[in-house]
Design a protein around this nucleic acid. Sequence first.
DNA 1: CGCAACATTGAGACCAGTCAAGCAAAGTGG
DNA 2: CCACTTTGCTTGACTGGTCTCAATGTTGCG
Lengths: 231, 231
Amino acid sequence: MNPQTIVCNGCAVADRAVCSVLTEPERAELARMGRRRRYRRGETIMAAGDESTVFATLVEGVAKLSLIDSDGTERIMGLVHPAGMMGQLFTPSQRLNVTAVQNCEACIFPRDSFEALTASHPALAQRVLKETLRDLDESRSLIDMISRRQAPARVAALLLSFSRASSPSACFPADAFDLPLTRGEMAQLLGLTIETVSRSITALERDGMIRRTGSQSIAITDRPALEALVA
Amino acid sequence: MNPQTIVCNGCAVADRAVCSVLTEPERAELARMGRRRRYRRGETIMAAGDESTVFATLVEGVAKLSLIDSDGTERIMGLVHPAGMMGQLFTPSQRLNVTAVQNCEACIFPRDSFEALTASHPALAQRVLKETLRDLDESRSLIDMISRRQAPARVAALLLSFSRASSPSACFPADAFDLPLTRGEMAQLLGLTIETVSRSITALERDGMIRRTGSQSIAITDRPALEALVA
DNA sequence: CGCAACATTGAGACCAGTCAAGCAAAGTGG
DNA sequence: CCACTTTGCTTGACTGGTCTCAATGTTGCG
């Protein structure tokens, strides 16, 4: 069942992923170059240090980009959501680990073939560039959050972003949702410890902004207050 | 004296800037579209919120990318060195301030003209993409440093990067150099306060790793120790 | 059931922030 | 040339938020 050939018809992200800028026949050509694969929660999609040979688009699930320090601690640098890109182009080796934090499905392409395609199709190169600029913006937002906000505000910001990501419509964020990350992963992403994340969640609940319904289920009970805390 | 037409012959970054991938006549065409301008230390090159109308390449000097928070505090998100790019492509407005922290010289192009050029010249689009990927890597290194290292290690890392940047040859970093940033700017970049930066420098000097020769002049006296602190 | 993984809570230590004072260098104007 | 101001840097005392260490609770699974 794994891996499979790519079928673009009915693909959940066909209109948002970078391949959406290609014409029908061009996309068919790209599809023939690649494979579709599933990953289970916790499975490594790409490993840091690996020869960088593939480029991928996430179709379903959530993946984390992380870096393992010399002392063995992991640092999450960002998350990848459906339609997002995984794998560094134009570099000899991967600098980051990419790991599924939920069951994932991805379209995998040989890196050199994909790079060649960007050379012959300027629209694709532009689209990848735009996406990379978005990643850069996100990375800078993370810097801002880590260096300025205190722990409860960082956790609040993360909860709000989960709220947005877990909703089918971007305009109407979900008020109840499941956390895609463990406390430990949230801590690594926010530059905190597990204990501080846990204490912050407790504090947010005590202040009536959220309610816990199971260790991974959150309900937002006072969104304005939560947003005010982040701003 | 300001602004002037662009003359690529003898340009200090002609072999490293993104325009280096263009052919001679193509570059001449680009040069006609733009202007070269000087900025004094402290001068704003682009302001956040501005309609994003220009794209620029830094030819000389050092610039900072910063964000002003709602409470008025400034946060530096990164530095731009010669051959680096300034100005966000494909976005309606600038999200970051770009300010000269040293006297600068830059080639300024209309954003839409430059974007059009990336559409017709895949090599240029690829080159801009590569540069953006490098920026993304740098931004993620900053995340790593801010969230994991303590104050003296962050300052040490910054000093080492200045040491590299101020040397003509990348392979032989300079042991004595002037700091391009004030204590306040270093603090904003590292996510610390002025006082903590100052105390960290004092501590590094007390431990014999560096020596201060004037408030902006630093000499590295024990590079291995400094590198060990960062690693 | 009992184990393993994850989460919560508490006590104490420590690093960096805040507040405040003093110092040094570079202008500025009489 | 000398007060005077401005700006930036250093240092100290104190506070406080987060980390560390440790114990306990909870959930899910073989």
